[in-house]
């Protein structure tokens, strides 16, 4: 069984997102695997453990220089890593197209039985790459999965949270799923895992025939959220202020 996991690197939540001369100041940003992608990878590893005979291949559109950071996926237990060098872009359509081409380079016309992605990346948060990639691959997809069970007959039972409730699905392979927080608890990397990761195969491809972007970044500015906070001395004053502000 072939399992593909798509990952990306994002600024660590502890990083300071600052601006200098109107542009993002990248000097104080350290990058990590996107947290949602870790849920996706963990689910792939669990699936491999159940299946026995499965290969987990991790794909990332990134410069080859990011290999040491991406090797964390190998240290967690993935079998192989494919890095696809492409233009720096925040257009999900371009990213999905590049991934589609990389899948073709690796798998030919076959499609992996299971493709897992994170629900969204925490940097640009579009959450669009998984659904676009599924459509390009011609496989069904479901976004934001919080529970996955594989029945012995190969049927997948899936759950996801929706506004005000949850949905339970039945699905078959091949399928692309995007992982939501709650799906599992990603394993920690061990020293042994880190050592082994260094010996695992890493392939570097370069993206060709990248389509024109359909969406481009027009502006990026610091979020201005500061408000003038009116402080209340006691509950009575708080209620009075809220009534005056027509909030209560």
């Amino acid at each position: 069984m072939e399992i593909a996991v798509c990952v990306t690197l994002v600024p660590d939540t502890a990083s300071v997102i600052g601006f200098r001369d109107g542009a993002l100041d990248t000097s104080r940003i350290s990058e990590v695997l996107n947290p949602y992608d870790e849920y996706a990878l963990e689910e792939a590893l669990l699936m491999r453990e159940r299946q026995g005979d499965a290969t987990v291949r991790v794909f990332s559109v990134a410069p080859a220089s990011k290999k040491p950071l991406l090797q964390k996926a190998l240290a967690m237990g993935a079998d192989r890593l494919v890095i696809v060098e492409g233009p720096e872009s925040c257009d999900p359509w371009q990213t999905a197209s590049i991934l589609r081409e990389a899948f073709r380079a690796v798998y030919g016309e076959a499609v992996p039985e299971l493709v897992l992605c994170g629900r969204e990346s925490t940097d640009f948060r579009s959450g669009e790459v998984p659904g676009m990639l599924a459509t390009l691959l011609g496989v069904p997809s479901l976004s934001g999965v919080t529970k996955l069970e594989a029945a012995p007959d190969g049927t997948l039972r899936l759950e996801r949270e929706i506004e005000g409730g949850l949905e339970r699905f039945e699905a078959r392979l091949p399928i692309l799923l995007s992982a939501e927080k709650g799906l599992n608890t990603p394993r920690k990397t061990s020293m042994k895992g880190v050592m082994e990761a260094r010996k695992k195969p890493v392939e570097v491809l370069s993206a060709r025939d990248v389509p024109e972007p359909r969406v481009s970044l027009e502006s990026l500015r610091p979020a201005e959220r500061h408000k003038e906070c009116r402080m209340a001395g006691d509950v009575r004053e708080l209620v009075r202020l809220l009534r005056k502000g027509e909030v209560l």
Partner: peptide, 11 residues
Amino acid sequence: VYSGAALAGFR
């Protein structure tokens, strides 16, 4: 975007 630290406009 970026955990809410920035606001991005798209075209």
